[in-house]
Structures are given as structure tokens and as C-alpha cells.
């Protein structure tokens, strides 16, 4: 499998307190693709994403087994470079999480701890990240204001831009539009369609329609089990599993 671009997840299982949070999940996403992950609450979507960028290391009592490769290199081992992995695999949280800093300092946070401190360079990176997140027009003249002054939708796009400042190879998004209005949602979806050119994207969403709109392939998770994983069109038009059909048609539970 070595040498393959993107993210390969093989038989990933996560247990906590004797309960399976994920059961032998295998997925794959390559640069240029958006992988949509859908599933009802509690099916393990967030757990999966947190495992992929090693944020799960912070949760005590998780037992993780299986293999995950980034560009062919394993990222689950104890000796893996966790900080490096987190910079290459960016994560956007379900609610906007601006740090109590200015817009500028929020965006500069990642590059600065990586050693980039020259204002000129930071500004250049900011411009391109903010443009990618469709936020440049709205904030380019107020970068020194507190990030908390922005609206919820703007804050979420700021968080996206902040992650993009790291120039990640993989972009993980956990229900990035859950609290947003249709216009902000559309802006983020537009941004993702463009960003896909430069990176592999994993989009977890509660909104089945969103997956059908933007994802190239879609995975349906149910109580930690990967029920179905197929190209989006196929999964939405001819689902092989009855449970998938029930879920996407809203007849679930």
C-alpha cells in the first residue's frame, strides 16, 4: 500500500469502556476527492475524525486498533510525529471555535508555532486562506478586531481559513455547517469544491443532502459500523443496504 497518496483507513476499531465506538472501518480518500460521512447521532463520526488527526490522544481510555496511512506512512503508532500529523491533517470543529484573540492572531496561530513570524509572509498566507474560505471581502480591513466580533457563519469560515493556514494535505470537517444559515452553508460548500483540487477532504455531516451535493464518495456509519461506502451518486440512487435507504430517505428510527 505504500506510496499511495491520500488517506487510507484499514480495519480501524475504537473501543471505550468495553463498548465499540467504531467496528473495523475501512475507508479511503485521495487528493481531489471529498469523502462525505453521514450517520445518525452517536454513530462515531466525530470519534473517527478525532482519531485521524490524533486528537483522540487527549481522550483517556480509548483503545484504538487498525491501520491508518497518510501518503503511505502509518500515523497511528506511538512513535509517529503527532504534531506533524496534526499540521498535515487539519480539523475544523462542529461549532465555531475562535480563540479569544484578534482575527489576525487566530489565523497566525498555526504558522507562528511552526516558526513563521514574518508579518509580510503571514499576510500573504492570510489573504490566500481567507479567499479560499470566502471570507476575504468581509474581513480584510478588520483583521485586528477580536474574532468574537464576527457572526457565527463568519467565525466558522475563519476557523476554516485558520486550518487552511497550515496548508494541510487532508482537511477534516466535523459538521462544519451545523449552526449556519443557508447562505453561509453555501459559501462553505463552494469553498470545499474549490479546495478539493489541492487536498483530500473528509466532510462529516448531519445533513444528508449536503453529502449528496458536495461529496464524491459517501460513507454511511451506523452505531460504529460502516454500513455502506460507495460513490455518492451510487449510494444515493441505488443503495445496497436497506438501512442506508431508510436513512437517506428519512425513514430512519
Amino acid at each position: 500500500m505504500t506510496g499511495q497518496k491520500g488517506l487510507q483507513i484499514e480495519e480501524l476499531s475504537i473501543r471505550a469502556d468495553g463498548r465499540d465506538l467504531l467496528r473495523s472501518v475501512s475507508l479511503e480518500v485521495r487528493p481531489g476527492e471529498i469523502l462525505g460521512i453521514i450517520g445518525p447521532a452517536g454513530s462515531g463520526k466525530t470519534t473517527l475524525l478525532r482519531c485521524l488527526n490524533r486528537l483522540a490522544d487527549l481522550d483517556e481510555g480509548l483503545r484504538i486498533s487498525g491501520r491508518v496511512f497518510l501518503n503511505g506512512a502509518s500515523i497511528l503508532g506511538r512513535d509517529a510525529d503527532v504534531v506533524g500529523i496534526r499540521r498535515k491533517i487539519g480539523l475544523v470543529f462542529p461549532v465555531p471555535t475562535p480563540l479569544p484573540l484578534s482575527i489576525f492572531d487566530n489565523l497566525a496561530f498555526g504558522p507562528r508555532i511552526g516558526g513563521i513570524t514574518a508579518v509580510e509572509e503571514l499576510r500573504r498566507m492570510m489573504e490566500s486562506s481567507l479567499k479560499s474560505a470566502y471570507l476575504w471581502e468581509e474581513v480584510n480591513d478588520r483583521l485586528n478586531e477580536p474574532a468574537a466580533n464576527l457572526s457565527g457563519g463568519q467565525q466558522q469560515r475563519l476557523c476554516l481559513a485558520r486550518t487552511l493556514m497550515l496548508e494541510p494535505e487532508i482537511l477534516l470537517l466535523d459538521e462544519p455547517c451545523s449552526g449556519l444559515d443557508p447562505i453561509s452553508t453555501a459559501q462553505i460548500e463552494e469553498a470545499l469544491k474549490v479546495l478539493r483540487k489541492d487536498m483530500a477532504i473528509v466532510l462529516v455531516t448531519n445533513n444528508v443532502k449536503q453529502a449528496s451535493r458536495v461529496a464524491d464518495k459517501t460513507a454511511f456509519l451506523l452505531l460504529g459500523e460502516l454500513v455502506e461506502f460507495a460513490p455518492t451518486r451510487e449510494l444515493f440512487t441505488t443503495p445496497r443496504d436497506k438501512r442506508t435507504e431508510d436513512y437517506i430517505t428519512g425513514r430512519f428510527g
Binding site: 486528537l55 496534526r86 487539519g90 470543529f93 480563540l99 496561530f109 508555532i113 476557523c159 497550515l166
Partner: peptide, 12 residues
């Protein structure tokens, strides 16, 4: 969440 953001942006 503030701590997790810092970690997710590659902070030690």
C-alpha cells in the same frame, strides 16, 4: 475547545 484548537493547529 480552546485547548483542542491549539493542539489541532499543531501546538505542543
Amino acid at each position: 475547545s480552546h485547548r483542542e484548537v491549539a493542539y489541532s493547529l499543531g501546538a505542543t
